[in-house]
Design a binder for these strands. Sequence first.
DNA 1: CTGTTAGCGCTTTCAA
DNA 2: TTGAAAGCGCTAACAG
Lengths: 343, 343
Amino acid sequence: MSMRNSGSTGVTLLDVAREAGVHVSTVSRALDPAHHARVKDATRLHIEAVAHKLGYRPDMVARGLQSGRTAAVGVIVADLGNTFITPVIHGLTAAVETAGMMPMIAETEDDHDRFSNILDHMLSRRVDAMVVTSARTADREILEAAGRIVPIVLAGRPLDGTSLAQVIVDEVSGGRLVAEHFAGLGHRLVAQLRGPLDVANFPRRASGFSAACTEAGIEEVLVDEAATLPIIDEGRRIMQVLMDQTTALPSALFAHNDLMALGALTLLRDNGIVVPDDIALAGYNNLPTVGHVSPSLTTVNYPSTDVGRIAGEMILSLLAGDSVVDVVLEPELVVRHSTQTKA
Amino acid sequence: MSMRNSGSTGVTLLDVAREAGVHVSTVSRALDPAHHARVKDATRLHIEAVAHKLGYRPDMVARGLQSGRTAAVGVIVADLGNTFITPVIHGLTAAVETAGMMPMIAETEDDHDRFSNILDHMLSRRVDAMVVTSARTADREILEAAGRIVPIVLAGRPLDGTSLAQVIVDEVSGGRLVAEHFAGLGHRLVAQLRGPLDVANFPRRASGFSAACTEAGIEEVLVDEAATLPIIDEGRRIMQVLMDQTTALPSALFAHNDLMALGALTLLRDNGIVVPDDIALAGYNNLPTVGHVSPSLTTVNYPSTDVGRIAGEMILSLLAGDSVVDVVLEPELVVRHSTQTKA
DNA sequence: CTGTTAGCGCTTTCAA
DNA sequence: TTGAAAGCGCTAACAG
């Protein structure tokens, strides 16, 4: 009944070496695909058999201490409740899994201190690389400092003026798509329910939307406040701000993400305002659930799986010492019922 | 321009020791809250200052190798798209954060091989403990084997006949709540859209529901199939199975979780069947979004935050060498529009 | 209260 | 092709 001494099974390389009648370093080589060659086939086979029999499991911690590599890629997300992140993670997992790596996810809950904390932990845990989907303006410096230690890829949330690798979506274009849709529907007065200003996605969506409105000769009501977080409750709150601010409600609303759209939707319903009959509402992200509700939500599809996959591929390239170029993906408008008055 | 040699800043204990003019072990003690006492205040203060100046960050990997503790708790989840998990993670984070620990999350996508893989990785990464929310019947043996190496708490998803610590919800009671609600509404013919049979939650929900139906004299249509995964698409598919199976549709449906309810809802809508006017529909979990859609979903509230928090507290107790007792939380019915015909 | 001395389990020169 | 030896950065006895 000894305390566990290995984090794993308790079976160490030394155990395998003894049982196999060879030196520990031979076992190390035999079990390491990169050094397969340096050991005689017969002994390697024998060692593999023994290792298997004993249930040997390499200790990543010990390995990491020596080699610097831990086969872990840290993933930092802002809010797991915002499910556009789920496909990002799936895509990423699929990509790095091919190299035997595993994503380790941590959530900031969009809190700067926690972000900084997580960054520290991951670094001190020697992840081989990081994918950050939660970048805010204020995080830039510590992120870039971290980027000098391990490769970092920014995915989904861009950061202005950074040299870190990014795979992002053309948010300006996304905003335009919504405005052009509204224009095509004949709306003349619209408004945006803006997301946090320190998350670069949202100002970009806003500027694309506004520019296209101007071009189409559509008037925009400027809501006095932007959301502090891109969540349901804030969507509802900002909607309330708009309603308090004017009696002449616009005929179409662009919520900067689907969660905010849901919050706005509830407030409207509570006030007897019907979407889309009384007011049109569009979101952003195309969360897996928003096509299944009534009214089904018109939104901008976010190519989440691709974002994740490409981020993973970038990580692998960076780790291989190759350089990478930023990738910008194109969003697509998904028209559903929330912007369609009945046929 | 040297390669990083530490996973962290590159500043090691030795660097701090040299700069401070003391031995490395003195630094180790000074910086470790648990050994604060064993070092003179003056030297400790001095060391802390030096450490801060140099930007020293402890290397968890090296620490873990020696001490066996890494301040990480592994969290294994099945599907991040099922957002009842989000509050679980928040509760857990809040609880273990107090002890300076950090959750490291990995997702199985409800795949047994990936589950086994993740378990391995986490063990070999020497997490101090694990919280598993993704348990399936087939995972039991490897889970219990892992439980002999580190403390494991099962959260949310129970496992039949295990000795691992659990914090779960009374699923039988949850199923009953729905049936009793249907009975109160006067329904006489009902059906369940059943979740995967190898995830213990679902058979329990089913049996509670069926038992209460029998007691209330309600007839239940048995759907030929159960979902293979508790997701939107499967909810839709099972709903189709039911529709193919009978022309006499029941007047109320119990989907075993909210995602499945959403899938069923869409199929019903596509067939011109109106919820709740033509058929009542209830889900399970009370996902953060389902109160914001139309019809807002009647569901069973899952005390997710509490599940997470308690799991975290259990982990802490287990780590402190204390024993813990299983916790069973009570679910609550949340009545919304999907089961209410208009007033 | 502080320094010395051993390792944790593994990879990696360097020899043989 | 294999063994020996050193050491990654840290903690933990054991002395003093």
